[in-house]
Design a protein around this nucleic acid. Structure first.
Ligand SMILES: [Zn+2]
Ligand SMILES: [Zn+2]
Ligand SMILES: [Zn+2]
Ligand SMILES: [Zn+2]
Lengths: 133, 133
DNA sequence: AAAAACTATCAAGTTACTATAAGGTCAATA
DNA sequence: TATTGACCTTATAGTAACTTGATAGTTTTT
């Protein structure tokens, strides 16, 4: 199949698919005499795998690592657990950080009321305060 | 003062300060005959303001908007409230999205146990599943 | 005088695409 | 047959906000 059909099957943009190929995440497809790429079901599977990983916001580096591990089927899968756990930790840390941010922003909002002029804006004043560390 | 001193006062890297100048976020400092930038207390204040905004993860575009508003002190500050509220909404949406992600990743982790070989890894199997939409 | 510290500019790398440009190929239609 | 339109190709640049590196000129210290 050509690239147009695999975009439909995989839900990925043609440019993105070529990009993954360039990044070494996708087995190189065969080429026709005219230069067109020819994909197989294997490519569909590979792209589905990548897409599922991306929806979990795994980085392309992480995905590359997973793909490499798949080629060593008899090693321990502990590395995979470690990778996913590391990713979970990143996500949790980011949630915590954003929750702190949300509190700060909400508190900032409470510094101002409607109908003020900009020179009296409590939000701007608060952003200008010297206090910190 | 030179750039080295203002890095200490502002907590920002010299390159970052030059970058902000290039981005039009910072009043252009005077130059000495040798080309060295000369900063004043005004620049320290401007950089502190930018830094505080960045710690709240406001974008440089948002900061540019805030700086522009400051030059119109008699307009209503409603736009500022809108900007910050919009930012809060972004943060909240991202938190929600990451919490969903965390659940999915935790559920993924439960698909595998220690001591398996990669070909039997439940995580990899799960990432390969066709089910979706 | 030589070395260390400071400053300058410019270019490239980071992430994972996305968009644009310019052009070759193919099938169907007028 | 000519041409339209859909499809494919490569290459380049842009996104966000820096960060790193290269190269070079200036000032201060030893
Ligand atoms: Zn990760
Ligand atoms: Zn206000
Ligand atoms: Zn924002
Ligand atoms: Zn496993």
């Amino acid at each position: 199949m050509h690239i147009g059909e695999i975009t439909k099957l995989s839900g990925l943009d043609a440019q993105t698919i070529r990009f993954y190929e360039y990044q070494g995440l996708l087995t190189m497809p065969a080429r026709q005499a005219n230069g067109y790429r020819t994909y197989t079901d294997i490519h569909v599977e590979q792209l589905s795998f990548i897409r599922r990983c991306r929806m979990l916001e795994l980085s392309l580096t992480d995905i590359r690592a997973l793909l490499k591990l798949k080629s060593a089927p008899h090693e321990s899968c502990e590395v995979i657990n470690t990778l996913i756990n590391g990713h979970i930790a990143e996500v949790q840390a980011r949630i915590t950080s954003l929750q702190t941010l949300e509190k700060q922003l909400t508190s900032l909002m409470s510094c101002c009321a409607d109908g003020r002029e900009i020179e009296d804006c409590g939000i701007l004043a608060s952003l200008h305060e010297k206090s910190e560390h």
